[in-house]
Amino acid sequence: MRLPDETADADLMQRTAAGDREAFATLYRRHSATVYRFARLMTGCTAAAEDIVQEAFLSLMRDAARYDPRRASLSTYLYGVARYQTRQRLRRDRRFVTFTAGAVERLVTADDAAAGRAMERQDELSRLRGAILALPSRYREAIVLCDLQDVSYADAAATLGCAVGTVRSRLHRARAMLGERLRRAAAHAKEPAMRCAV
């Protein structure tokens, strides 16, 4: 039986704690995409994001009875779990070399102006993703939550365990760092470079 969409998260959590799999499935359908996107933006890795979603929801299932809706909304709680899992993952994977897709420069021929613009736009997004991934994690979290996931400053502060003012200052600093990195990347892209076909 599919539960109605308007069933409150707190109610679904209570049912989940009692072993109701359908309630858990409804929570998953409601919140998994948010957790997935957060993890993807934080790690830059789809496979890692999938693992983090799984860990976050397994943790939700295990600790459902301990969830207190008066302390935080479920999305804030899930961001907190996803953040913890992401940090663990990043700490663990620091030892390994990352092979970044797009590290090899592509040689492409744009057939028309529209294709050229679309490609340029993709390159810009790709550069922005790279610049976000290069930020220290406390600044990256602020950008991902507030600018890319529309989380309010108050909820971001609850997720990150800091004051709202700290979120604002991290966001300000993160944007400044991003702007600087993108300017450098754009200047570098304009320099004539030796290209080779692969």
């Binding site: 995409a33 997935y36 999938e50 979603v53 997004l125």
Partner: peptide
């Protein structure tokens, strides 16, 4: 504008079915 464009691009990303 770039952040806004990235947000729109990310909003279209769905969790793969095999994860569930």
């Amino acid at each position: 504008e770039q952040l806004e464009a990235l947000k729109h691009a990310e909003n279209r990303v769905a969790v793969p079915a095999h994860v569930e």
